[in-house]
């Protein structure tokens, strides 16, 4: 594990080996537990932000607890984490694949050398795991995309990816909660809101959730 300081009040803990470009699910599970443990101590420790990433954790402190104390705390807790087999939540997201909702569906299928029907089957037939949230409010980094669907990002990013777009880029798939520019391939769209700041739980998805995409009718 490596720890680096960011600015005067933050620490970045990296739990993956140097140069790794994938994250072992066990590491990520321990990370969810570490985050929950710190979340419960947020006020006592004066933590401002507790941000799990892909195999890493960013802590922003209000400096009430010195950074080296925080570092020791995390380093001493980490080896003791027992990945409790907590029953994950299951979330289904209805997706309308193809047509104007997924303008890249055919191009992706062609690139992968499969039919659009097979592409939809492979994409919808997987249990994805939410590794972390970020980029946009409620945007989930999902693991588990079938390797047959891996595809390099578009040469030219789109200026506007509509909200609700379901996309594939590199070895990942995701849903865009909000319209934004984006370089991923759009294969479908969902109506399901992923973020509602007025609700107690602002995001539909949480780290550790299991997500399935369900082919459905046209979004309204």
């Amino acid at each position: 594990m490596r720890v680096t300081q960011i600015g005067e009040d933050a620490l970045l803990f990296v739990f993956t080996p140097a140069g790794a470009n994938t994250v072992d699910e066990l590491i990520q599970q321990n990370l969810w537990q570490l985050s929950a443990w710190l979340e419960a101590r947020r006020e006592t420790l004066g933590l401002v932000e507790i941000v799990p990433g892909m195999g890493n954790l960013l802590l922003r402190s209000g400096l009430e607890t010195p950074l080296n104390t925080l570092q020791e705390l995390v380093l001493s807790y980490w080896p003791d984490i027992q990945s409790e087999n907590m029953e994950p939540r299951h979330v289904e997201i209805p997706v309308h694949y193809g047509e104007e909702f997924g303008p890249d569906l055919e191009a992706v299928a062609a690139h992968c050398g499969i039919s659009t029907h097979t592409l939809i089957e492979l994409h919808a037939d997987t249990h994805y795991r939410v590794y972390c949230l970020g980029f946009q409010p409620g945007f989930a980094y999902l693991s588990g995309l079938d390797p047959r669907l891996h595809i390099p990002r578009r040469d030219t990013p789109r200026i506007n990816v509509p909200a609700g777009s379901v996309a594939i880029g590199g070895a990942q798939t995701a849903v865009y909660p909000f319209a934004s520019p984006g370089g991923w391939h759009l294969i479908g769209r969902t109506d399901t809101p992923l973020f509602n700041p007025a609700s107690v739980q602002a995001t539909l998805l949480r780290p550790g959730d299991i997500v399935r995409f369900v082919p459905s009718g046209e979004p309204t």
């Binding site: 993956t16 140069g19 990433g53 890493n56």
Partner: peptide
């Protein structure tokens, strides 16, 4: 350099 996505902050 291959970096896995990680938390960033204003000022970075």
């Amino acid at each position: 350099l291959s970096l896995l996505s990680a938390g960033v902050l204003p000022g970075d």
